[in-house]
């Protein structure tokens, strides 16, 4: 009985993680520019791989391995926004523009303003 519940939990987490990872990849393909693509990669991608890692941790039925998987999950959640922020900042500083759908860009406006003042 406990076996069955455990298998169900692990199975659901695996499939959910797979779906999120798949949708992250789909988002990277479908969204219009690098900034919107980053949304898909940093949110859905992190949750997807994190869920699958946690599923592996639960499946092991070993508290030591589960804490390790949990630490890995926390690590992914902490590093994903940092990586996304760095790439976004570098891309914007290098001059990669938002897609034509974009309605506003305060950062570019403020930079122009600063350049004019100088």
């Amino acid at each position: 009985m406990l076996d069955l519940v455990l298998a169900l939990v692990v199975g659901v987490m695996l499939v959910a993680g797979g779906v999120f990872t798949f949708l992250a990849a789909l988002g990277i393909l479908r969204l219009p520019d690098v900034y919107t693509r980053m949304h898909a990669a940093s949110k859905a991608g992190t949750v997807g791989s994190g869920l699958m890692l946690l599923a592996a941790g639960i499946h092991s039925l070993d508290i030591a391995i589960f804490t390790r998987a949990l630490a890995g999950f926390v690590f992914f959640v902490l590093t994903a926004p940092v990586a996304a922020h760095l790439v976004a900042k570098a891309a914007h500083a290098a001059g990669y523009r938002l897609s034509r759908l974009a309605v506003m860009d305060d950062m570019r406006a403020s930079r122009k303003h600063a350049a004019k003042k100088r």
Binding site: L14, G17, G18, T21, A24, A25, I28, V34, R37, M38, A41, G45, T46, G48, S49, M52, L53, A55, A56, F76, A83, V87
Partner: peptide, 16 residues
């Protein structure tokens, strides 16, 4: 960004 996602996918593979 795509390579970063590939890493996440590889992590998922390894977990499975």
């Amino acid at each position: 960004v795509a390579l970063d996602t590939l890493t996440a996918i590889a992590i998922g593979f390894i977990a499975v």
